[in-house]
Write a protein that binds this DNA or RNA. Sequence first.
DNA 1: TCGATATTTAGATAATTATCTAAATATAAA
DNA 2: TTTATATTTAGATAATTATCTAAATATCGA
Lengths: 92, 92
Amino acid sequence: MNESFKALADPTRRKIIKLLRESDMTAGEIAEHFQMSKPSISHHLNSLKHAGLVQDERDGQFIRYTLNTTVLQEVLSWFLDIANTESKEDLS
Amino acid sequence: MNESFKALADPTRRKIIKLLRESDMTAGEIAEHFQMSKPSISHHLNSLKHAGLVQDERDGQFIRYTLNTTVLQEVLSWFLDIANTESKEDLS
DNA sequence: TCGATATTTAGATAATTATCTAAATATAAA
DNA sequence: TTTATATTTAGATAATTATCTAAATATCGA
């Protein structure tokens, strides 16, 4: 889970997550949304993959990336762990 | 919000958040939970403060830290923004 | 097989980050 | 005022990170 937090610390990678939330995409399609070299995008995708937040799959000439929602929800549960007890105190 | 994500990328700082979730604490009390120099803890607290995640208040000889839950919930809402549409898809 | 396209890997570089020790600053008590 | 305690600031250092260019690799079509 530390890897996930680290991966999400970067704004480019957060934007990639949001893009993949909309739909699966190839590396090139993702790269089109950024003013950045392709290798840099590749580096970011590798970081997200290493954190388990995305998965890649060779699709002919392309590599398709998909969001791995279970890992994202793991991180969400960290916040809910804190926020849930928080909302209880709000009630009282 | 980028500052918050960056601050939460570090495990020490996440643990500090959890500690402050339990109760307000002085810098020294926080430091007791870690095998780390006091200045290092101070550096982490400064990072959290800069991100708006915690607040400090001089309490005589001590400095008391409290969790700033509104900023934490801002970050939570980023996840909910993604997770909510996600849970909808789970239903269908 | 060669050429085209997609993408990653490798290497360099500058910036950022996490930890330490020493010193400085703030508050309180003697 | 001096001493004690709490905490931060300053500076150094090593590790990590984000971006680039060049080169390498993988797939496809002619």
